[in-house]
Amino acid sequence: MLLEQVEYVRPQSLDEALEILANDDGAAPLAGGQSLTNVLKNRVASVDVLVDISRLDDLAGIARTADGGLSIGACVTYDELDRSADVRQTHWLLGEVAAHIEDQQIRNKGTIGGNCCLSDPTNNLPPLLVALDAVMELRSRAGQRSVASADFFKGYFATALEPGELLVSVTVPPMPAGSGAGYTSLAVGADAKAMVRAAARVTLDGGTIADSRLVLARVAHVPVRDTDAEARLNGGDATEESVAAACAGVADGMQPIADVHGSSEYRRQMAKVMARRAVSQAVAAARGSRNGSKAGGN
């Protein structure tokens, strides 16, 4: 409550927003405000001017891309993801994960763009977007560029965004044929902040895993792909036993942050469990050939 003095502006166009952001180091985009408002309330960072981008048409809407993937405007809310027929059809799990972010009020305001640009390690969407090979479309007055989601998250509250740059949309490629996705979290309470998460995508070739993505969240400051585990999975049987064996070494050598909810060692163990469950879900989804299917909860 009771923020510091701050300016507010609601630009009428994307260009105008980029202009303001380019000219003022102390400007910050305000999207859903479901994190930024808290930052301001608790006066942990100060902002000169809030640039309200939430009503910009250029950042709204979900579109199918020519290749059957999705282009999601940065200001699309979790609730819109949850209810979008396109999302449910092409990437069912993305809608499902969005449907389990905290609560209805936050889902009605929080945006995919804000969820990523904050780069809070507890946020739900980053690990999933990395597992889905999503691409972040960035724009500044200087022009537009694309950054792979795997390269977008740079650290605790840090991203590849340059000053004056906005995330305008997220492109999610179509699920490869024969693939499925999975997502699991170990949370303090239902739909609450997670201690560990894992997101996975596997592509099956008959009874074997042809390709995989395994992304862990909260074992480090940013979502990390466990390429060793992926290598163990790839070419292996798509059975419980072989998935379990491949995931046994997950997070070894990592030092997850310890806090009141558990030690570093506990989190490492949990990363293995979450990884195995996410991969198993992905396998089941691939078998059921529902795109990115099976409810992973939050």
Binding site: Y8, R10, L30, G33, T37, N38, K41, Q105, K109
Partner: peptide, 15 residues
Amino acid sequence: GKLVKSCMILAPQVD
């Protein structure tokens, strides 16, 4: 028409 938390929105945003 959308349920929101009014402590997570600034007054000028609802103009």
